[in-house]
Computed example of a mutant assay.
Amino acid sequence: MEYKYLFGPVRSRRLGRSLGIDLVPGNICSFNCVYCECGKTTCLTEKRGEYAPVGRIQQELDHYLRRKRDIDHITLGGTGEPTLHSGISTILEYLRKHHPEYKRAVLTNSTLLSDPEVRKEIHTADLILPSLDAVSDSQLRMINRPITGITTEQMIEGLVKLRTEFKGEIWLEIFFIAGINTTEGELHLLRDAAVRINPDQIHINSLSRPGAEPWVSPLTEDEKKRILYFFTEEFANTTII
């Protein structure tokens, strides 16, 4: 079978051997992040829909997993925002029932987590990896360039509620861009937000491959260590990825 929506397994820095499911192919997203390694968003939206057919995804999973595979996680992600897919709960439940030996992970940019229905739909995952790169709305617009109407407080509140409802682990990723969200003021805002969210882990990230905008550059090792030290004052389980 030719796989249209499965990719990998790839060696992930966080998830080990990860089999990916591209739920929203074609760079359809609620963000247009300046650092996105998939390139610029082609369709900026917060409208949910069946962007990839659920039946086809189930067929591909059954075909690929018909033999025991050396996989650490099956990860719902791809080139866009996976929670935009209206069938995400169906796919997670299918994996839980038909392929329970594999852990289920969901990547998300956190923009839809203010919706209680979305939070409910992903509650059968084993692991959720949300991101939060900014607390001030001006930084959000500079870094993530969201569709109109999304605010950082809305995202943070959604993450706080997810923490109270979700029984699995939450690993919060923060993507840093030198001189943008690395100032003392922004670091304090991000750490205070993380305290509210109370994730199991915090992952510090920066550019490793070319992003959507050429001016985005990776942090130096000294900058990474400075930020790591700042966050470990409150969160011992903070790592650079």
Rank of each mutant, 00 (worst) to 15 (best):
P53M: 03
V54N: 06
R56M: 10
I57R: 01
I57M: 04
I57S: 06
Q58R: 04
Q58D: 00
Q58M: 14
Q59E: 15
E60Q: 05
E60T: 03
L61T: 02
L61Q: 02
D62C: 09
H63I: 12
H63M: 06
Y64I: 12
Y64T: 11
Y64E: 08
L65C: 06
R67S: 14
R67H: 15
R67C: 11
K68R: 14
R69Y: 01
D70G: 01
I71Y: 08
D72S: 12
D72G: 12
D72M: 05
D72Y: 04
H73G: 03
H73M: 13
H73V: 15
I74L: 04
T75N: 05
L76W: 05
G77A: 15
G78S: 05
E81S: 06
P82E: 14
P82W: 06
P82F: 05
P82K: 04
P82N: 08
T83Y: 05
H85Q: 05
S86T: 14
S86F: 02
S86Y: 02
G87R: 11
G87Q: 10
G87V: 06
G87M: 10
Y94L: 01
Y94S: 04
K97E: 13
H99P: 11
H99R: 08
P100C: 10
P100R: 12
P100V: 05
E101S: 14
K103H: 14
K103S: 13
R104C: 06
R104N: 03
A105H: 05
V106G: 10
N109F: 03
L112V: 00
L112H: 00
S114C: 07
D115F: 04
D115P: 04
E117D: 07
V118W: 00
V118F: 00
V118I: 15
E121P: 00
H123N: 10
L127S: 03
I128N: 03
L129R: 00
P130Y: 05
L132C: 12
L132I: 15
D133K: 01
V135A: 03
S136I: 03
D137H: 11
Q139E: 15
L140P: 09
L140W: 09
R141S: 12
M142A: 15
I143Q: 10
I143Y: 12
R145T: 11
P146N: 07
T148I: 07
T151P: 03
T151H: 09
T151N: 02
T152L: 02
Q154L: 09
Q154T: 06
G158V: 07
K161A: 14
L162T: 12
L162G: 12
R163W: 03
T164Y: 06
T164D: 13
E165H: 08
E165G: 10
K167H: 15
K167T: 12
K167R: 15
E169H: 10
I170A: 09
W171A: 11
W171N: 11
W171D: 13
W171T: 12
L172G: 10
L172A: 08
E173D: 13
F176K: 04
G179I: 07
G179W: 13
G179M: 09
I180W: 10
G185Y: 01
G185L: 02
